[in-house]
C-alpha cells in the first residue's frame, strides 16, 4: 500500500477519533451519572455546525463562530433540560431514550426550517499544510487532534481534581448516596447535561470544515457515535477515548481498502468486541444496575 496514503489516512483517522470522542464523551457521562441515553446530543452536534456556519459567514471569523455555536447550544440545551429532560432523570433508560430521540427529531426539523435543506460549506480556519514523513497533511487536522487531547485532559482534570468532578464520579457510582450526603444532585445533572451538549456542539463545530453542513449530519454520525460508546463501554471516559481511537483508525484505513468498509468495518469490530465482552472494553462496573 502507498505509504503516503497510509500516513494521511492515519492522521485523518486520528482527527476523526477526536471528533468522535468529543461527541461521545457527553453520551457517556450522561449515561454514567443520570443513567439516561441522551440522543438529543446529535441535535446539539448539528446545531453547533450550523451556528458556526452562520456566524462565520456573518463575521468572517471561525473562532467567533465556535464561541457563538457553543453559547447558542448552551442556551438551547438549557431550555431542553428545563422543559423536557429534567422530568425523566429518575425514569428507566428506555424512557429517556425515546424522549430524547423525539427532541432530536424535533431539532432536525427545526434546523430544516431555519437553514433549509441544501448543504452549507464551512471553510477551514487553518489552511496550511504540514509535511510529515514526506506526506502533506492539513494543519487543521492536526489542530483537531490537539484540541481533542486538550479536552480529554481537561475532562479528566475536572473529574479527578475538582470537587464537582468528584461529586460526579461519586454519582456515577451511586447517585442516591450523593443526595443523602446533602449535595443537590439535580444541579449536578444539569451541569453534566450542559457540559455534554457543549462538547457535542464543539464536535459539530470542528467537524464542519471536513464535511458539508446538512440537516441529516447528526443522523449520519449516530452510528459511529454508538459504535464508539458501545466498544468503549457506556459511562467510561477512558473507554470512550480508547474506542474513539480504534473506530477512527478502522474507519479511515477501512475506507482506504474499500470505500463501503468505512461503515461496515467498525460494525464488525463492535460485534467481535461484544462477543468477547458484552459490556464493551471498559464498561463492566456500571452494568450491575
Amino acid at each position: 500500500m502507498n505509504g503516503q496514503l497510509l500516513i494521511s489516512a492515519i492522521v485523518l483517522g486520528l482527527s476523526m477519533s477526536g471528533i468522535y470522542f468529543l461527541l461521545t464523551v457527553g453520551l457517556s457521562l450522561c449515561y454514567g451519572l443520570m443513567r439516561m441515553i441522551s440522543l438529543d446530543q446529535f441535535f446539539y452536534y448539528a446545531l453547533g455546525a450550523y451556528m458556526v456556519y452562520t456566524v462565520t459567514s456573518l463575521t468572517g471569523s471561525f473562532w467567533l463562530g465556535m464561541l457563538g455555536a457553543m453559547l447558542t447550544t448552551l442556551v438551547a440545551a438549557f431550555v431542553v433540560e428545563r422543559l423536557i429532560v429534567k422530568r425523566v432523570y429518575s425514569k428507566p433508560v428506555m424512557f429517556s431514550m425515546i424522549l430524547t430521540f423525539g427532541v432530536n427529531l424535533l431539532g432536525v426539523g427545526l434546523i430544516k426550517y431555519v437553514w433549509g435543506l441544501s448543504p452549507k460549506p464551512v471553510a477551514s480556519p487553518i489552511s496550511g499544510i504540514m509535511n510529515i514523513f514526506g506526506t502533506g497533511v492539513p494543519i487543521y487536522r492536526l489542530f483537531v487532534i490537539v484540541l481533542a487531547v486538550v479536552v480529554y485532559l481537561a475532562v479528566q482534570y475536572f473529574l479527578n481534581k475538582t470537587i464537582l468532578g468528584t461529586a460526579i464520579r461519586a454519582g456515577i457510582d451511586d447517585a442516591e448516596k450523593v443526595e443523602a450526603l446533602g449535595i443537590n444532585i439535580n444541579r449536578l445533572f444539569t451541569l453534566t447535561f450542559l457540559l455534554s451538549s457543549v462538547l457535542s456542539a464543539l464536535a459539530g463545530v470542528i467537524h464542519a470544515p471536513f464535511v458539508m453542513v446538512s440537516p441529516e449530519m447528526g443522523m449520519s454520525i449516530t452510528a459511529f457515535a454508538f459504535m464508539v460508546v458501545i466498544i468503549g463501554g457506556l459511562g467510561s471516559i477512558k473507554g470512550t477515548m480508547v474506542s474513539a481511537l480504534i473506530v477512527g483508525q478502522v474507519v479511515s484505513i477501512g475506507a482506504l481498502i474499500w470505500a463501503p468498509l468505512a461503515e461496515m468495518a467498525p460494525f464488525l469490530v463492535m460485534m467481535i468486541i461484544l462477543l468477547i465482552k458484552p459490556t464493551g472494553l471498559y464498561g463492566s462496573k456500571l452494568m450491575n444496575r
Partner: peptide, 22 residues
C-alpha cells in the same frame, strides 16, 4: 440479545445505519 437493553437499542440503530450502507 446478549446485550442489556441500553446497548441493545444503540446496537440496533447502528445496525440500521450499516444496513442502509450495505
Amino acid at each position: 440479545v446478549r446485550l442489556n437493553s441500553s446497548y441493545f437499542t444503540l446496537c440496533n440503530q447502528a445496525f440500521c445505519v450499516v444496513t442502509f450502507f450495505l
